[in-house]
């Protein structure tokens, strides 16, 4: 069973819940935790794991051969990312940081003046241990297309996921391409939210996205005893979902979180129990 842990708003406790839940499920089942927040992966910190690099992720970039270039400008015309500038009578100018590696220029060049080169865009890490198996990725600083990194992470995941009973995919906040890539092909999305106006607003956005992806969603309220739970009830009804657990705002939880440790709370056991009843 593949379960995405997401939330819309940042800082609701996605990684906190994902790590604690992974360790709870690990007691009886084979569990893989996937940190798909590839811009700011944190799960290894909470779990005190030193990540093991297993693969570098590369992207194609064009290399222009001026000897063959006929200055036709087709490469710039087909580039949807505006990474190639063409001015009549001049050689094309390439701006590498806008390139997403689609190879359209390479394919379209009638003079075969464009060769393929590689640039590093990220790294995949995989740790297998007694404690937990953790798969994660990290984007190179300055690289804008986090969704591509998540897709590459998922490609690797597809090769190994059959070895596990539960795969927990911890997503980034927001509803952008990187979150969509992480949610895609999940059996269930657990949405961690908080009962605040900000939490409510972003909860609706993420539930809307999950619905459009055709994935079943259930909600976990974190910091449940602060704010006002009533404000999110209407949204739960609208998206025909329900709360399966509430995690209180408690000193012991904050203490564990602030010292970079996984939290302990009976709500986590409740989520695990609920999941066991699903399969």
């Amino acid at each position: 069973m593949k379960i995405a842990i997401t939330g819309g708003k940042g800082g609701t406790g996605k990684s906190t819940v994902a790590t604690a839940l992974a360790l709870e499920l690990r007691k009886t089942k084979k569990v893989l935790l996937v940190d798909a927040d590839v811009e700011c992966p944190n799960d290894h910190l909470i779990l005190s794991i030193k990540r093991k690099k297993i693969k570098e992720i590369f992207q194609s970039i064009p290399k222009f051969n001026r000897k063959k270039c006929i200055k036709c400008g087709l490469c710039a015309k087909v580039c949807r990312e505006n990474a190639i500038v063409f001015v009549k009578g001049r050689y094309p100018i390439f701006v590498p940081d806008l390139c997403i590696g689609c190879k359209a220029c390479l394919i379209s060049c009638p003079a075969k003046a464009i060769e393929e080169e590689k640039k590093k865009i990220g790294t995949i890490y995989f740790n297998k241990s007694e404690k937990i198996d953790l798969l994660s990725a990290e984007t190179e600083i300055g690289y804008e297309e986090a969704g591509i990194i998540v897709n590459r992470l998922k490609e690797f995941l597809h090769k190994i996921e059959k070895n596990y009973d539960y795969v927990l995919v911890d997503t980034a906040p927001g509803t952008h391409c990187n979150v969509i890539a992480a949610l895609k092909d999940s059996d269930l999305a657990l949405v961690v939210t908080e009962p605040t106006p900000l939490g409510k607003h972003d909860l609706e956005l993420i539930l809307k996205l999950i619905k459009s992806l055709g994935i079943k969603a259930r909600v976990i309220i974190n910091k449940a005893n602060i704010g006002n739970k009533k404000i999110i009830e209407k949204i739960l009804r609208k998206y025909k979902t329900e709360v399966i657990a509430e995690i209180p705002y408690r000193k012991s939880i904050l203490k564990a979180y602030s010292s970079g440790k996984q939290i302990k709370d009976k709500a986590i056991q409740k989520i695990a129990e609920w999941l066991r009843n699903q399969s």
Partner: peptide, 14 residues
């Protein structure tokens, strides 16, 4: 969305 400066540069260069 992005790369506006480059498109504008191309525009004036042409």
């Amino acid at each position: 969305f992005g790369g506006a400066g480059m498109t504008a540069a191309q525009l004036v260069a042409n």
